[in-house]
Amino acid sequence: DNKLKTVDSKYMVSETQTTMQKATTFNNFYEFGGDKSDPSHNAHTLQTRPWTIQLTGMVKKQQTVGIDDLMAYRPLESRVYRHRCVEAWSMVIPWDGYSLSELINFAEPLPSAKYVQFISNLNRKQMPEILGGFDWPYSEGLRMDEAMNPLTLLCFGCYGEALPNQNGAPVRVITPWKYGFKGAKSIVQIKFTDKQPRTLWNDSAPNEYGFYANVNPQVDHPRWSQARERRIDTGVFPHMVPTQMFNGYSDQVASMYNGMDLRKNY
């Protein structure tokens, strides 16, 4: 039984939720293949127990925590977030977890730590369909204030169940005001640094994928407009909705970017 015990959250988007069937069969998880349907077919080979997460870099004490201890550390909130992919489609998904800030406080980073890097699992034996041409393992990062923002979710489940492998089991990060690729999946290491960490997509195509990757309808991707998005729902015909600044989370996050040129820091 995959059911999780969750508590209510104040972070609830009231828009119609994407069905679990669609949210779990339409994934970008290139470790398990390049097609959207590949991860749901291939990710069953991923072993999620035993699983540990290393807390490394600029912390008071390097430590390794087990996934089950981490899941029990704080009550799991059921939060409904908008999820916006850089490819101009979007979903509304109930995620289960608690604020990443809880874990960061537990890790006790040094005052000199300015960034948090998330490194994903890389196990080629369990990933026979992994795409070549990328600098694996997957790496993503956030500025410390972004990582500490209460919206940033350390996520263990969705739809009230433990994360399916294809959605990033057993633990991932969700930053709902950023494009989906910022949310590293199947995390094995969280590293605190004083320099902006390398991120996989930024390494691959820096003109297309910035470090910040904040949802911004005014800044186009070279291949498509970001002004609108296709909401993944039950219809055959596209349900287009206008994209909101910071994916509709301006009230909670805009102040972190005061004075920054968001065209340059895309």
Partner: peptide, 10 residues
């Protein structure tokens, strides 16, 4: 079947 597809347009 198309409506069951997550992204029929694509």
């Amino acid at each position: 079947a198309l409506a069951n597809d997550a992204d029929p347009v694509n």
